[in-house]
C-alpha cells in the first residue's frame, strides 16, 4: 500500500458553462501523486488553480468537473456524493491558499480558527483542541504560541499568517496538501522560512504535496517533479532537477523570458504561443 499512488487523475476536465459559451479551464489533465512534492507551474489562466480546486470539489457554479478517473487512495471521487467529498476535504486532502489576509476569518482569533479546524474533523474537547493547536503553532515555528493564539489575523504579519494557515491545514493530518501559491504574497526571505517549514512537515509526515506556482525557479528548487501547464493542458511533466533541460517549446520559452543575472542579454526573449500546443 505504501507505493500505491495517493491520488490518480485521468482526463480531468473543468468546464464553465457561461451565457456566451463553454470555457474549458482544464482540458484533459492526467497525473498520479505519490508521497512526493509535485509542482504545477503555469501562467495565469493555465488552469493550475482550477486543478487544485477540482480535486477538492471546490469548483463554483457554473463549473462542471468531469474525469475518466479521479481516485483518492483507491476511492472513486467521481461517483462520491457531496457529503462524503466534504468529509474528505480538510481531513484527508487540504489546501493552503495564497494570501492569509483574505483566507483567514478576520473576526476570530487565529488560535480559535486552528482549534476549530481540528474539532471539525476529530472528536475532542475544547481544551484538547486548544492544546493541539498550541503544539501545532509551535510546529510551524511560532515563537510564543500562547500569545499568538489570541491574536486576530490583522495583528499578525504576512509570514506569520501563512504559517497559521499551514498549521490549520496540517492539524487534521491530511494525506495530501495542495498549496496554491502559498508564498507568493511574501517577501523572499520570509518565503524561504515558510517553505522550509512546509517542506519539513510534509517530509516528516510522509504527505503528498501539490505545489501550485507561477515561479519556475522556486518550483525547480523545491519540488521533485513538475507539470508545466498551458491553456488547461499539461505541456510536459519532468523531474524538477531537469527543468533547465526541458524539451517543450513552451517550457523553454518561459525559461527564456526570465531575466537572469548570470546571462545578461540586451533583449529578453518573448514567447511565441503555438496554437498547436492546445490541439
Amino acid at each position: 500500500m505504501a507505493d500505491a499512488p495517493l491520488l490518480t487523475l485521468d482526463d480531468l476536465r473543468v468546464d464553465f458553462h457561461t451565457p456566451t459559451g463553454i470555457v474549458n479551464a482544464v482540458r484533459g489533465l492526467s497525473f498520479t501523486l505519490g508521497r512526493e512534492r509535485l509542482g504545477i507551474v503555469g501562467e495565469s489562466g493555465s488552469g493550475k488553480s482550477m486543478t487544485g480546486r477540482a480535486i477538492l470539489d471546490l469548483i463554483p457554479h457554473p463549473g462542471v468537473v468531469t474525469a475518466k478517473r479521479m481516485e483518492f487512495r483507491g476511492k472513486d471521487l467521481t461517483t462520491m456524493d457531496k457529503a462524503s467529498r466534504r468529509k474528505l476535504r480538510g481531513r484527508h486532502i487540504s489546501m493552503v491558499m495564497q494570501d492569509p489576509k483574505f483566507s483567514l476569518n478576520p473576526v476570530q482569533t487565529v488560535g480559535d480558527q486552528i482549534a476549530e479546524a481540528y474539532r471539525v474533523h476529530h472528536k475532542a474537547s475544547a481544551r484538547q483542541a486548544k492544546e493541539r493547536s498550541l503544539s501545532m503553532l509551535e510546529a510551524v515555528q511560532i515563537r510564543e504560541p500562547g500569545r499568538v493564539y489570541d491574536l486576530y489575523p490583522h495583528e499578525v504579519s504576512g509570514g506569520m499568517g501563512q504559517r497559521v494557515m499551514i498549521a490549520m491545514m496540517l492539524i487534521a493530518e491530511p494525506e495530501i496538501l495542495i498549496a496554491d501559491e502559498p508564498t507568493s504574497a511574501l517577501d523572499v526571505t520570509v518565503q524561504l522560512q515558510v517553505l522550509k517549514i512546509l517542506d519539513d512537515l510534509v517530509t516528516s509526515r510522509g504527505m503528498g504535496l501539490i505545489f501550485i506556482s507561477h515561479d519556475l525557479h522556486l518550483v525547480k528548487s523545491f519540488c521533485d517533479r513538475v507539470i508545466v501547464m498551458y491553456g488547461g493542458k499539461a505541456m510536459e511533466t519532468l523531474p524538477a532537477s531537469e527543468l533547465d533541460r526541458a524539451q517543450h517549446p513552451y517550457t523553454r520559452g518561459l525559461l527564456g523570458c526570465l531575466p537572469d543575472l548570470d546571462h545578461p542579454r540586451e533583449k529578453l526573449a518573448t514567447l511565441n504561443r503555438d496554437p498547436a500546443w492546445l490541439a
Binding site: E43, S44, H214, L216, G253, L254, C257, L258, L268, L271
Partner: peptide
C-alpha cells in the same frame, strides 16, 4: 506573467 513581463521590460 513572466512572458508578458519580458515584453514590457
Amino acid at each position: 506573467d513572466v512572458s508578458i513581463q519580458a515584453e514590457v521590460l
